[in-house]
């Protein structure tokens, strides 16, 4: 249809630091797995854990 917008789903990963509760949203990378250790926390010396993986719609 002429006026329908194409919807694209983008996968995101939410990392959460168990020490300071800091959350960071980034694009999903292949190999990301829920509840696994992810990266160093940017606000403390803790190690972030993947809390959620989800898709969000982008309209283009």
């Amino acid at each position: 249809m002429i006026f329908s917008k194409k919807k694209t789903i983008v996968a995101y990963t939410i990392e959460k630091c168990p020490k300071c509760d800091m959350q960071r949203k980034r694009k999903f990378v292949e190999g990301d797995c829920l509840f696994s250790d992810s990266s160093k926390c940017t606000s403390c010396d803790g190690l972030t854990r993947i809390e959620k993986i989800f898709g969000q719609e982008l309209e283009s």
Partner: peptide, 10 residues
Amino acid sequence: ITLMTKEIAD
């Protein structure tokens, strides 16, 4: 059956 939406994950 598709990638979990933000609303469901939340």
